[in-house]
Amino acid sequence: MKNKIVIFGFVAILISLYFGGIAYQEFISENMDQVYINIGYCTLFLSIAVYMWHIKDEKQKNNS
C-alpha cells in the first residue's frame, strides 16, 4: 500500500510538471487566461502529491 501512495505522488508531480510546461508555453505566447488555468492545475496536482506523502508518513507513524 505504501508503494502505491509513493507512485501516485510521483505521477501527480509529473502531471503538475506537464501543466507547468503548458503554462510556460502559453506565457510565451501571451495568452494569460490559459496561463492562470494551467498554473491552477499545476498547484492542484502538487498539493495532491504533498498530501500523498503526508498520508505515507502518517501510515508509517501508525505502524511503528
Rank of each mutant, 00 (worst) to 15 (best):
M1R: 03
M1N: 11
K2C: 14
K2A: 15
N3C: 15
N3P: 09
N3K: 11
K4A: 10
K4H: 03
K4N: 10
I5E: 03
I5L: 03
I5G: 06
V6G: 06
V6M: 08
I7E: 06
I7Y: 13
F8M: 05
F8T: 10
F8V: 11
F8K: 04
F8A: 05
F8Q: 00
G9C: 03
F10Y: 11
F10S: 11
V11L: 02
V11T: 13
V11C: 05
A12P: 00
A12I: 07
A12D: 00
I13S: 11
I13M: 06
I13H: 08
I13T: 07
I13Y: 01
L14M: 07
L14S: 15
I15E: 07
I15Q: 07
I15T: 07
S16I: 05
S16P: 05
S16D: 02
S16T: 08
S16F: 12
L17D: 07
L17V: 11
Y18E: 10
Y18I: 12
F19C: 01
F19R: 04
F19H: 00
F19V: 02
G20C: 01
G21L: 05
G21F: 06
G21K: 12
I22V: 09
I22T: 06
I22S: 14
I22Q: 02
I22K: 06
A23C: 05
A23L: 01
A23W: 02
Y24A: 02
Q25F: 15
Q25V: 08
Q25N: 14
E26N: 14
F27A: 11
I28Q: 11
S29N: 07
S29W: 12
S29P: 01
E30Q: 06
N31W: 01
N31P: 09
M32W: 06
M32Q: 05
D33V: 14
D33R: 15
Q34E: 14
Q34F: 14
V35R: 00
V35S: 01
Y36T: 15
Y36A: 15
I37P: 03
I37G: 08
N38E: 10
N38R: 03
I39C: 03
I39R: 01
I39D: 05
G40H: 07
G40E: 09
G40L: 02
Y41H: 04
C42N: 09
C42T: 10
C42A: 08
T43C: 10
F45A: 00
F45R: 00
F45H: 04
L46S: 01
S47T: 12
S47D: 10
I48E: 00
I48W: 00
I48S: 01
A49P: 00
A49D: 00
A49S: 09
A49R: 02
A49V: 05
V50L: 07
Y51V: 08
Y51T: 09
M52R: 08
M52Y: 10
M52A: 07
W53S: 05
W53Q: 12
W53L: 06
W53G: 02
H54F: 15
H54T: 12
I55G: 07
I55W: 00
I55A: 06
I55F: 04
I55H: 00
K56E: 13
K56V: 11
K56G: 12
K56Q: 14
D57M: 13
D57I: 15
K59M: 14
Q60A: 13
K61T: 05
N62K: 15
N63G: 09
N63V: 15
N63W: 04
N63H: 02
N63R: 14
N63T: 15
S64P: 08
